[in-house]
């Protein structure tokens, strides 16, 4: 068999058979012209691989953030969205399938380099567990192990939609362990506007005050002025305003 450039490219791309491999390796040792040719190819190939990603301009990211902000629907009344959340009992199964799929894909693609952006797989089946304490435990585990920014979105969702005060309470505490972002800030403030349970209201106030979030002042004032709000919550809001 004649070894030409086409064959060398096949060899470079790892598409040659074991027999061809042996033959090419031998030929490469003997034929210096061929060797030079191959070295050039290999050099180009590895340089190509190490080419860094292109850097888009900053305005691209701003544009996306701005657009997403404008898109994010104001959550409908919590009651109805909670029902949806609970209904998604299929969720657990879904998550399991995704995990399996991820596993499968990972194994299939082992031979080729896995792109760096393939994220760490953290199971989140717990999010839709019918058991309150399992959801709480899920929050503890998810936030203690790693600070995956995706978890922040899960926590904010739980804070908006979970039917259990105890879960919402745990979400508030867990969110405070993340570096403060606008998402977290806005999430906490929006939750305070919607929240009706005193125990969670107080936790939210104390979180916002702890984060020295001056943007929360109007919400605290609104609570103080709201007749439906329990006195103890108003006291907490008053205290918070003094500290801010």
């Amino acid at each position: 068999m004649k070894v030409d450039q086409e064959m060398l490219i096949k060899y470079l791309l790892g598409e040659t058979t074991t027999m061809e491999n042996a033959m090419i390796t031998n030929l490469l040792e003997e034929d210096l012209t061929l060797q030079k040719e191959y070295q050039e190819l290999a050099k180009i190939w590895s340089e190509l691989e190490s080419l860094p990603d292109e850097l888009p301009s900053q305005k691209m990211e701003h544009r996306f953030t701005h657009w997403l902000d404008s898109m994010s629907e104001v959550p409908a009344s919590r009651k109805s969205s909670r029902v949806m959340w609970l209904r998604s009992g299929r969720w657990a199964a879904a998550a399991a399938v995704v995990l399996l799929a991820g596993f499968f894909v990972f194994h299939q693609s082992k031979s080729t380099p896995v792109s760096e952006s393939r994220s760490t797989v953290t199971g989140i089946e717990w999010v839709s567990s019918p058991s309150t304490t399992e959801r709480i435990q899920g929050i503890y585990h998810a936030t203690m192990k790693e600070h995956d920014p995706a978890i922040v979105q899960i926590l904010l969702k739980l804070l908006r939609e979970d039917e259990s005060d105890n879960v919402r309470l745990t979400a508030v505490e867990a969110l405070q362990t993340f570096p403060l972002t606008d998402d977290i800030k806005i999430g906490l403030i929006q939750a305070l506007e919607k929240e009706e349970k005193p125990v969670v209201q107080i936790a939210l106030i104390s979180a916002l005050v702890g984060l020295s979030d001056h943007d929360a002042k109007p919400q605290l004032e609104a609570l103080i002025g709201n007749e439906d709000v329990e006195k103890t919550v108003k006291d907490e809001a008053q205290l918070g305003l003094l500290r801010l």
Binding site: T133, Q137, N166, V199, I202, T232
Partner: peptide, 9 residues
């Protein structure tokens, strides 16, 4: 068993 308890006052 597991516990998730909250009370305000």
């Amino acid at each position: 068993g597991p516990l998730a308890i909250s009370t305000v006052h």
